[in-house]
Design a binder for these strands. Structure first.
Lengths: 262, 262
DNA sequence: TCGATTTATGCACGTTTATGCACGATTATG
DNA sequence: CATAATCGTGCATAAACGTGCATAAATCGA
């Protein structure tokens, strides 16, 4: 037999990637059962995906290349240098006395860590890990958005959290983002997360997003806001000229993070 | 038997590293129990990690290669072995399907870490650090109580948080406690914290507190509840007979945590 | 339209890997 | 210095693995 027609190879790989993102891992045996193919086929898929840098092969299955969900703290250690540079550029936008919403995301965790210990400001976040990190900055007032935690996102993004947000009018919203494209705008992997981001962004005086280069030109399934709704985009120094031009054409100001590690 | 499917080898090692970073040490026997594998397997893991320069192998467990001082988690490192024993005893009271409130406090953080990765239950907490730790247990539903964070307590305990709590009726409330005395009852250092604890305790079907021996017979400034309102007290094995007797005289059941450090 | 090629898949085979167990050696502790 | 906990090693085993090969659907070339 061949090609079951039920699922194209590409579809299957795409679904496997989804599972990796949401579950933080996949088991070869599980996938074989779920897709009605032999484990050999799944193993082949995983091997190819690993070769393409899309996942990490391990005995029994595979893990995301950036181990997310499970160990959130590890995502931040992924590309520390690059994220740190972005973070340094981003904290410059947080002025004393401001009220700032810090969205979920590993880049935003890096931003939280980069905040000066004595900065006096009010930070609102829906992400426990970011709140924990901020607890070590004595100058900050912290407000936690509560509700059921979405473990794919690592934050509270549901109806409960949205209701809390409706009482807020932050001076600045620092959005985490899963994809950024001039046409598609800022996008997210998860529906509720996108909904939440859209809400908080719409209520903020200005919107900022720090975006690693690997997300440029990509679009995740769910739209958050158009590029024109983002006041400022912080990109890495190696961002393609074309992308930068496309973003500025939409009215956003683009800041390039310092290239040097220092 | 082989490959338990519950946890991939790589995931296990990754979790061990997390523990090393946050706790400052790990015990082989603890890890074996927590991950449902034999100690041999854990020892092998630790040996390999040590060979890879990820930790330092010591008799009984392992230490981080560079003992960094995570200021937030420092409290939890104060008496890790003792707290771990209390924690193991406490998790026994969390049954599948229950809704449990996990209060702030370093002992409760240890309890959170001791929860089996595959336990299926709903955990409510007002402490970002505990929420972060629980994020790594895939079986749990997590609900975060939000609001302004009290940085002396490390949790949300204000009016906003109390309003959230008024919608809850947990099966079990695991209280953190700053002092425990047969006459003074359970007490706390901070007024709002005590207020919050009193509220959540009064709304829970049963109340449990795990208490290190150094808190026995002491009273902090603010009363939470009388001893008679605590269904179960978990004490260390070295707790004085007199204290135990006084507690049971008030109608609480007392559980002694396993004596051995392992 | 028809053969040739590629592609996706399953199967059989031998290999590797993760794990637990048994046993003797080592180490902490009192 | 005695005892119990902890350790490492060798061994057994089952799961997971990769490879080579066969097959059938899709694609291509003429």
């Amino acid at each position: 037999m061949k090609m079951s027609t039920e699922l194209l190879l590409r579809e299957r790989k795409s679904l496997i990637q989804d599972r990796l993102r949401t579950d933080g891992r996949v088991l070869a045996a599980d996938l074989a059962r779920e897709f009605n193919v032999s484990e050999d086929t799944i193993r082949r898929d995983l091997r190819e995906m690993a070769a393409a840098g899309l996942c990490e092969r391990v005995y029994g299955g595979a893990l995301p290349i950036a181990p997310d969900a499970g160990s959130l703290s590890e995502r931040a250690t992924l590309a520390p240098g690059r994220k740190a540079a972005l973070a340094r550029a981003a904290v410059g936008f947080i002025q004393p006395g401001m009220t700032v919403f810090l969205d979920a995301g590993s880049t935003n965790l890096a931003i939280a860590r980069a905040i000066a210990p004595d900065l006096s400001a009010t930070i609102v976040t829906n992400t426990p890990l970011i709140a924990s990190a901020l607890m070590e900055k004595p100058g900050l007032d912290l407000i936690l958005i509560g509700g059921p935690l979405d473990r794919a996102v690592g934050a509270a993004v549901g109806a409960r959290a949205q209701r809390d947000v409706e009482l807020l009018r932050p001076d600045l919203c620092v959005l985490g983002t899963c994809g950024a494209d001039a046409e598609a705008g800022l996008t997210a992997f998860h529906f509720e997360d996108a909904e939440f981001k859209r809400l908080i962004a719409s209520r903020s005086r200005s919107v900022l997003a720090a975006i690693t280069s690997d997300k440029l030109g990509t679009a995740a399934p769910h739209t958050v806001i158009g590029i024109d709704a983002a006041s400022t985009l912080i990109l890495e120094a190696n961002a393609p000229e074309a992308q930068i031009a496309a973003f500025t054409a939409h009215g956003s100001s683009v800041v390039l993070a310092g290239e040097c590690a220092g």
